[in-house]
Simulated scan of single mutants.
Amino acid sequence: MKYKSVFEIIGPVMIGPSSSHTAGAARIGKMARELFGREPKWANISFYGSFAKTYKGHGTDVALIGGLMDFETDDERIINAFEHAKKKKIKIRIREEEAVTDHPNTARILIGDDNGEMELVGISIGGGKIEIIELNGFELKLTGHHPAILVVHDDRFGAIAAVSNILASHKINIGHMDVSRKDIGQMALMTIEVDQNVEEVVLKELKQLPEVTQVTRIAN
């Protein structure tokens, strides 16, 4: 794993005893909220591996819930996240899972409200850094370190080129791209990390492509 500075090795400014189990969990929750696009009304959280064994002592549960409410890693409200969620009438369920996962610090989050739901899997990889590795059944790798767009589209010829051409026309450079599909010819997901935040006019053009069904922006 590469770090850009000594401050990333030391870890982030945070509430809690562990950058992996606390700050990382808060960032997974915050990323889930950002991908969902709004504050959820309920959340079912499953912890695996080390998360499942130590989440109470390390504050993993309150950190993740705080992230769902858009709290930063150093926000003191994280300590009382359950109470804040109760005041907002957000229903929380937490499960300790015994299944073995590829990474010890793994959380599966299912969130929703009256207008829909979303499921993702996030891992905390150390120093407060995270990766989202699954979203609604699609495999992906989303770190949150860079601006990104997620494009749900029909798996057909020319879809990737059409999206790339629009980004190129606006002089947006692609730093990293992953494409995941559930099966040949069905729905697919592009995860595109870029060098600058994507403006609304670009999102509008992408949404107008006939093969595109959804576009989500992750700002930085």
Rank of each mutant, 00 (worst) to 15 (best):
M1S: 02
K2S: 09
K2D: 09
K4Q: 15
I9D: 05
I9Q: 15
P12T: 13
V13R: 10
V13S: 14
M14H: 04
I15Y: 08
G16N: 11
P17D: 15
P17W: 13
S18N: 10
K30Y: 11
R33F: 00
L35C: 05
G37I: 00
G37S: 07
E39I: 04
P40E: 02
K41N: 12
N44R: 14
S46Q: 06
F47K: 14
G49R: 04
F51I: 01
F51M: 13
K53M: 14
K56E: 12
G57R: 14
G59N: 09
G59H: 12
D61I: 04
V62K: 06
G66T: 03
G66L: 02
G67M: 03
L68F: 02
L68W: 04
F71G: 01
E72K: 05
D74T: 09
R77L: 01
I79N: 13
N80R: 15
F82R: 14
F82W: 12
A85P: 03
A85V: 00
K86M: 07
K86S: 09
I94Y: 13
R95H: 11
A99M: 12
V100D: 14
V100I: 13
T101N: 11
T101D: 10
D102W: 14
P104W: 12
A107P: 00
A107M: 04
R108C: 04
G112P: 05
G112S: 07
D114E: 12
N115W: 10
N115Q: 13
G116V: 02
E119Q: 12
E119W: 11
L120P: 00
I123F: 05
G126D: 07
G126S: 09
K129G: 05
I130S: 08
G144T: 00
G144A: 14
H146T: 09
F157P: 04
G158S: 08
G158P: 01
A161R: 06
A161Y: 15
A162I: 04
V163D: 06
S164Q: 01
N165L: 13
L167A: 01
L167G: 00
S169T: 08
G175M: 10
H176T: 02
D178A: 15
D178Q: 12
S180N: 02
I184A: 07
L189K: 13
I192W: 14
D195I: 06
D195L: 15
Q196L: 12
Q196F: 07
N197R: 10
V198D: 01
E200C: 02
V201I: 15
K207E: 06
K207I: 05
T213A: 10
Q214S: 11
T216Y: 11
T216A: 10
A219M: 15
N220P: 03
